[in-house]
Design a protein around this nucleic acid. Sequence first.
RNA 1: GGAGAGGUUCCCGAGUGGCCAAAGGGGGCAGACUGUAAAUCUGUUAUCUACGAUUUCGAUGGUUCGAAUCCAUCUCUCUCCA
Length: 407
Amino acid sequence: MNAYDILKERGFIAQATDEEKIKDLLNNEKVIFYIGFDPTADSLHVGHFLQLIVMSHLQKAGHKPIALLGGGTAMVGDPTGKTDMRRIMTREEIEHNASCFKKQMSKFIDFTNDRAIMVDNYEWLSKLEYIPFLRDIGMHFSVNRMLTAECFKSRMEKGLSFIEFNYMLMQSYDFLLLKRKYGCILQLGGDDQWSNIISGVDLIRRKDMEESYGMTFNLLTTNEGKKMGKTEKGAVWLDEEKTSAFDFYQYWRNIDDAEVIKCLKLLTFVSMDEITELSKLKDEQINRAKEVLAYEVTKIVHGQQKASDAQDASKALFENIGQAQNMPSKEISVEILTQGFDILDALLAAGFIQSKSEGRRLIQEKCVLINNNLVEDFKLTIENYMFPEGEMLLRKGKKKYFKFILK
RNA sequence: GGAGAGGUUCCCGAGUGGCCAAAGGGGGCAGACUGUAAAUCUGUUAUCUACGAUUUCGAUGGUUCGAAUCCAUCUCUCUCCA
C-alpha cells in the first residue's frame, strides 16, 4: 500500500499544503522529508512518539527521514501552544537533552546505511550573523502576516517577547537549509506546527523559487481536546527511568474507551484489518482492544520482552491469572530495615508519594496495603516477617503496585 | 522615558490588617459504582521528628501585638503614550 494512503487511512493527516501533489510524491517517488524535535526535556514523550511512528511508516515505504534535533531552536523557544514564555534553557541542558533524544530515536528509526539522517540545527543557527540574516531571511517575513498566525494569537494577550517571535524564522530557515543541503522538500509535524511549516514553504519559494511541501498530523488529544500522554507526574515518558514499562503499559491499558481505536491506528503498526475487527467490540469487550494497544505500544517503545512482562504482571494483578512477577520493583537490604524503615519510607521509595504528608493522608484514606493487608498505622515499621517469600507487595489503591525484594 | 494595571498555593482565579495554609473552579490522588472505561457522587489536595511546629501569596527591608493584605525599594508582565 502507498505511503500517503497509509497515513490517510490511519487518520494521521490534519492539514497539507497541496494534498494532491503530496499524495503523488509519497505514493510514487522517494521523498526526503524532515520533522523537528526541540530537546526541551531529557526524554521524548508520547507526542514525539507519534511523529516517530509517522517517520517509521514513511521510512518503511522507502522515503528518507531527516530527524532534526532543535538544539538551536531550543535556545530560542517555540511560543506555540504556550501561555507563558518558556524558561530560557542553558546550552548544557539542551546538549544533554539532545543526547538523550538521539539515543531514544534510534530505537524507532533506522539510521544505518544512510537510510535516515539526524542533524542538529545548532550547527548552523548558532553561527548566524544578525545583519546578514535579517537582510537575507528577515526581509521575506511580513510582520503583519506573522501576527495573524494562529500560533501567536494566543500570545497577543499574555505577551510575546522578540526572541520567541523569531522562532518562526529559525524554523523556516531550517527548512530552507535542509532543502539546499539534502534536497528535503517536505516538512511534517504536529498540527500546532502548521504556521511554522507554511512559513518555511513560503521562504523556500521566495528564496529559491522552488516548490516545497508541508503536512501536519493530528495531535494526540482526547475527544474533549485535552492533550494525551499527561499524568500527575507530568508526561508519559519513553525513558524507562522516568516512566517504567509497567506504568507505560498501564497508561494505555487504562485509556478511555473512545480513544482506543484512534490510538491503535496512530501509535501501533497493527494492520487496519485487525483494527477494524477490534473496533467492532462493545462494552467490556473493549478491554481486549486496550490490551492489544497497551501491548503493541509498549513493544515498540520497550521491546517485546518488557511488553509481555508488563502484560503478565497486569493480568496477574488485575485478573488474578498466575503470579504477579514483573511489576516495578526494588531491592532492599536487611541493613536498611534494621536501621528503621517505615511505611512512609516505603511509599516514598516506591515513588507512590511525593511527601510523607501525602503518605499519611493516603493511609488515613485506607488505600495503602502491604501484602494485601490494609495499613492503618503510619508509623508501621517494615520488618523481615513482611517478606514471606523474600518479597513484599506494596499497593496504593487498586491500581498501583510495587514489589520490594529483600536482599 | 511617561501614565496606568498587575505578579496569590500544580493551573485559573477570589481575598485589601486578625475568623487565612488562604473561597471557587480545573487538574491530581483516593473511595463508591463499573469493565483496570466513561459519566456521576464522596473524601482529599504546603511541609515536618504531627493533638504541635515550620515555611508559603514576585524579591528585599519596614510599620504593627499581628501582614497575602499597609509603607519603601527592587524586579518581572500587560495596556496606552513617545
